[in-house]
């Protein structure tokens, strides 16, 4: 009995010993209550954000009569491409994408270049130069010349009517972003710059080969902000571009939605226009416009957060 009892207790002990790491592993694996709660909250918040987006996508594929009768649903039933057919049957969306891409790419490159250059000069605290440039960048944050002077400047002085640069130039430089960049540049270690100077580097070489490579986070932030601004820009195009073949995507869609919205109540509309799918079209337009720029966020995300926080810690 005793032997048997001893053997049993030994076996139990060994088994307990053998189970210890596994128990520890299990204990380690067992999620903390806070982690569980935070996962649930984040998941719910994620759904809270994603479901409306999904409903917009589903709505853009749902027949207008059902949308008007029953409201939104999670799945398109009955499935309808009427809004997309209308969108793609109007003015050439391809032209619009080309225009928007040109404005976004060229505009972003020009804006990032000029913002970084101006911010660097301000950040250097050069006598007689930095302070006037600071004022130059600061004043437009407070005051605006007004629409008529801007219109006269672009159309009559710069003669940029019907040019995509008329969309780019008026919003080339965002003062707020200049000051964010200045803050970032001022955090760069002065020793690195001094070392470069001792090695014989000039100001331009320091800027291009030392400062810019160290400033990728803020450049990514600038790029993202400017790209989103240029991609969404339609008002400057409305002001200065009158050739429909040069309309950016946003203006084409803005025109389309405004005209369909008004077609139902205005004389001169055809019956087909009066019967255009208003709800469905609004959703489809949202899908088409947010889609491409949404893709830019994952690429810039890691720089985005880092750049903002780095720039914000030192004034």
């Amino acid at each position: 009995m005793s032997t048997t009892g001893y053997n049993e207790s030994l076996l139990d002990h060994e088994a307990r010993e053998a189970d210890k790491p596994a128990a520890r592993r299990r204990a380690r694996r067992r999620p903390e209550p806070f982690t569980v709660a935070s996962h649930i909250v984040v998941t719910l918040f994620g759904l809270f954000c994603l479901i409306p987006l999904w409903m917009i996508i589903a709505g853009s594929f749902t027949d207008e009569t059902v949308l008007a009768r029953q409201g939104y649903s999670l799945f398109p039933n009955p499935f309808s491409l009427a809004a997309y057919e209308l969108l793609f049957s109007g003015q050439s969306l391809l032209n619009g994408y080309v225009a928007s891409l040109f404005i976004t790419l060229v505009g972003t490159i020009l804006s990032v270049s000029s913002t970084a250059s101006l911010a660097w000069v301000i950040a250097r605290r050069l006598p007689w130069i930095s302070r006037p440039l600071t004022v130059f960048a600061y004043v437009p944050m407070l005051f605006h010349g007004g629409l008529v002077p801007l219109y006269l400047l672009v159309t009559q002085v710069l003669s940029l009517s019907n040019s995509w640069f008329a969309v780019i130039l008026p919003i080339l430089l965002a003062p707020f972003l200049v000051f964010i960049t200045v803050s970032f540049f001022r955090q760069l270690p002065e020793e690195i710059l001094d070392a470069a100077r001792i090695d014989g580097a000039g100001e331009l070489r320091i800027f291009f080969q030392i400062v810019l490579p160290l400033s990728k986070p803020i450049l990514a932030v600038l790029g993202l902000f400017y790209a989103v601004t240029y991609w969404n820009e339609w008002f400057m195009a409305l002001l200065f571009v009158s050739d429909p073949d040069k309309y950016p995507l946003q203006l084409i869609l803005q025109n389309l939605i405004a005209n369909v919205t008004n077609a139902t109540s205005l004389p001169g509309a055809t019956a087909a226009q009066a019967a255009a799918p208003v709800y469905q079209l609004r959703f489809a337009m949202t899908v088409l416009t947010v889609g491409p720029i949404l893709l830019a966020y994952p690429f810039a995300q890691r720089f985005f957060v880092k750049g903002i926080t780095l720039g914000a810690t030192k004034g």
Partner: peptide, 28 residues
Amino acid sequence: ATIQSQFQAGRIASIWSMTDGLASNQLV
């Protein structure tokens, strides 16, 4: 536009019109 859309979906029985020859457009 929302009202017209609802009217065309059959959820509204009557709407405002003007004597401009446009009212029948809703029928389509």
